[in-house]
């Protein structure tokens, strides 16, 4: 690569810097499960299944999420970021009570992505809906558009961020499906915590992978999408609702 790079440098300095990154990089790291130099692909569609029958009255998923992502509040529930929250439901007619975690549903047709003026709110090829904080101007139109109240605007200065999870005042954020963990081949923190400390109500997987556990569970028992009337094709599915 080196002679090539030199030639590039001779042309224009700026172009060289940008152009050599591609070829130069491939030498660096070895291939893993999905190697760092392999882009997220449409072959996968990451998703979650939440079995409300197994969801116990705990908040292990919430604690784990906020710990993993360095989301710390100031005891101001309406301005603190809430990437995931436990919701209690009670049927108006019958009084039947349930509890479940609610977070970004990682829609195939996300309203937050449609409305974002700068394209900061986007859907990655593998179905994970993210906010590119580099281009988020903090207009909060996505917060208005989300059917699930899943997005949080950062109302206060932030410090002590996790290296993998940048967060900052004036931008919008939400559940990333622990994209940094998923990219390493791990499961999201909420799922891990639910299986360890909770009711083992959450399954993470690839909705496209017919051999996977998630696919099997969804194939063999009925499940629902929240706000199915909006036809968003959510990546998070619920059972027992």
């Amino acid at each position: 690569m080196k002679p090539e790079r030199r030639r590039f440098l001779g042309w224009t300095a700026a172009a060289a810097a940008a152009a050599t990154l591609g070829p130069g990089l491939r030498l660096v790291e070895l291939a893993l499960a999905r190697s760092p130099e392999e882009a997220a692909s449409t072959l996968q569609r990451w998703g979650l299944l939440i079995d409300t029958a197994s969801c116990s009255d705990c908040d292990a998923c919430v604690t784990a999420c906020h710990e993993e992502n360095g989301v710390r509040g100031h005891n101001r529930p309406l301005t603190d970021a809430q990437w995931i929250r436990k919701v209690s439901l009670r049927d108006r007619r019958t009084g039947f009570a349930q509890t479940l975690p609610l977070m970004c549903q990682h829609c195939e047709h996300p309203p937050c992505v449609d409305v974002c003026p700068t394209g900061a709110s986007f859907r990655r090829a593998d179905g994970i809906v993210l906010v590119d904080k580099h281009t988020c101007i903090g207009c909060r139109y996505c917060v208005m558009a989300c059917p699930f109240g899943a997005r949080s605007f950062v109302h206060e200065p932030v410090s002590g961020q996790k290296p993998d999870v940048p967060r900052g005042k004036g931008t919008v954020e939400s559940c990333t499906l622990c994209v940094h963990r998923v990219d390493r081949g791990e499961t999201p923190a909420c799922v891990e915590a639910c299986n360890r400390d909770g009711g083992a109500a959450m399954v993470f997987g690839d909705l496209n992978d017919a051999a996977g556990e998630l696919h099997r569970r969804l194939r063999t028992a009925p499940s629902t999408q929240l706000r199915a009337d909006l036809a968003l094709n959510t990546g998070v599915r619920y059972q027992g609702l």
């Binding site: 660096v28 790291e29 882009a39 593998d126 590119d132 580099h134 993998d164 990219d183």
Partner: peptide, 13 residues
Amino acid sequence: MRQGLREKRFSLK
């Protein structure tokens, strides 16, 4: 951010 390419070399981390 966009493609999930986490090459270490030029990363801010």
